[in-house]
């Protein structure tokens, strides 16, 4: 990764990396180390005394059904968001790849949700599904469905999944369409000449060839659902009703800033960091072995 021809060292390179490194140490490494340290501490309710308790905070989490439920919920939530969003994006991309006229317009409209902040997306869907006023609630009511995500936890979960998936469709769409464009036209033409119809071609050529992108997107979508959906949940349900939409990131915030359980919150942070590290490594390992055609 170093250039074959390069400058010999002086004070200059240190000066060049200094801003990045200083900010990294102050706002990344130091806080992360703090979180790690705090995860071994137990603080009383008034912050007067702290005690070093080794892995007690982690053991407590392991014994806490609430936390384990939140874990399972996050897993379900992220898989649901990833599959819903990727499914629709793939479907749209396959269609948009076929048409020539208007594909630019479709793309322009489909990338808009990407630019909408999660909390705004949440607010938007909250308004659509507002139990008393919402326009979709009204439509659902005419079908005899009684919508109230403030009371019904399954509906609350569906709503946050819907909002989170909506926001991520743009991203997935762009990657799928880019992947489809990079498939050599000759492959598609050859199979068309052999008499394969569009559906058959999609199943036997396009889909297998974009599978690296699909896998990459799966990891990215899971990371997104784990960490970037805070605003959506904060706006729509604030973790409720009960704890039914409290995913891990939300729980870190809730326990730390609202519940002031610093040790427990820090331990949760550490576990989350571990998950991010694993996901990032998976992503990078995969990137190294990117399939070429």
């Amino acid at each position: 990764m170093l250039k074959r021809v390069h400058y010999r060292s002086s004070y200059l390179p240190y000066l060049l990396v200094a801003p990045q490194i200083i900010i990294t140490i102050l706002f990344f490494i130091w806080p992360a180390a703090q979180a790690l340290y705090q995860s071994f501490l137990l603080q009383d309710a008034f912050g007067l005394s702290t005690e070093f308790v080794w892995f007690d905070n982690f053991i407590e989490l392991y014994d806490n059904p609430n936390y384990l439920n939140s874990f399972a919920r996050t897993g379900f939530f992220s898989l649901a968001v990833a599959s819903l969003s990727m499914g629709f994006a793939l479907f749209f991309a396959a269609l948009a790849d076929r048409v020539i006229k208007g594909s630019h317009t479709y793309r322009t409209l489909l990338i808009i949700p990407y630019a909408v902040a999660p909390v705004l997306a949440g607010t938007l869907w909250l308004f659509l599904f507002n139990p008393t006023l919402g326009i979709i609630t009204y439509f659902l009511d005419t079908f005899g469905i009684d919508w109230n995500h403030k009371l019904n936890s399954a509906q609350a979960m569906s709503l946050v999944i819907l909002a989170a998936a909506w926001k991520q469709i743009s991203y997935n769409f762009l990657f799928f369409i880019a992947a489809m464009h990079s498939i050599p036209k000759s492959l598609i033409e050859a199979s068309a000449i052999d008499g394969a119809g569009p559906l058959h071609r999609f199943r036997t050529i396009i889909f297998p060839l974009i599978s690296p992108t699909t896998f990459f997107l799966l990891v990215v979508n899971i990371i997104y659902a784990f960490f970037d959906t805070f605003g959506i949940i904060h706006a729509i349900t604030a973790g409720g009703p009960g704890n039914s939409t409290e995913i891990l990131v939300y729980k870190v915030y809730n326990d730390g800033f609202v519940g002031l359980d610093l040790g427990g919150s820090a331990a949760q942070s550490v576990i989350l960091m571990f998950i991010v590290v694993v996901l990032t490594v998976v992503q990078f390992k995969y990137v190294e072995r990117k399939v070429q055609y």
Partner: peptide, 22 residues
């Protein structure tokens, strides 16, 4: 290089409390 690489792995949401303290 590795020090910078690490930051890739730590979203704000995860280290929020200690960062706030800094």
């Amino acid at each position: 290089f590795w020090m910078i690489f690490i930051t890739l792995m730590l979203p704000v949401e995860v280290r929020i409390l200690p960062t706030y303290e800094v």
